[in-house]
């Protein structure tokens, strides 16, 4: 067993499942948005903003954001452990990535529920 404290769940199996589940959520979300856009060729701000006033859409979007955050972290964590061998640089990069993902997530929530 190889132990690693920076991986998402510290279990390869959980990471693997989460990555696949999150991919599924993002895929469904993407398909939904594409279909929505196709069905509304003359989309205006009011309709678009109306969509995001719906609670189910906010929850669906939040789920997609959280999935994106988890997916991105697992993927980028893998990339950093593959390619960045000096520990100091790798850990710094990982912190930067975590920070960025956190900021994007909070920002996303703010957009959804903000004024």
């Amino acid at each position: 067993m190889v132990t690693n404290i920076t991986s998402f769940s510290r279990s390869g199996l959980s990471d693997w499942i989460i990555q696949r589940a999150s991919a599924l959520v993002m895929a469904v979300y993407t398909v939904f948005l594409v279909v929505y856009l196709l069905l509304h060729p003359q989309l205006d701000y009011a309709t678009w903003s109306g969509l995001f006033q719906q609670t189910w859409m906010r929850i669906f979007s939040l789920l997609a954001f959280v999935s994106l955050a988890a997916h991105a972290w697992i993927g980028l964590w893998t990339v950093t452990t593959d390619y960045i061998k000096p520990t100091a640089i790798r850990v710094s990069a990982q912190f930067a990535i975590i920070f960025a993902i956190f900021v994007f997530l909070v920002w996303g929530i703010q957009v959804l529920w903000g004024a």
Partner: peptide
């Protein structure tokens, strides 16, 4: 199996 479930051994 329990020796393999970490993020590296198999899942790399």
């Amino acid at each position: 199996l329990s020796d393999l479930e970490d993020p590296f051994s198999v899942f790399r």
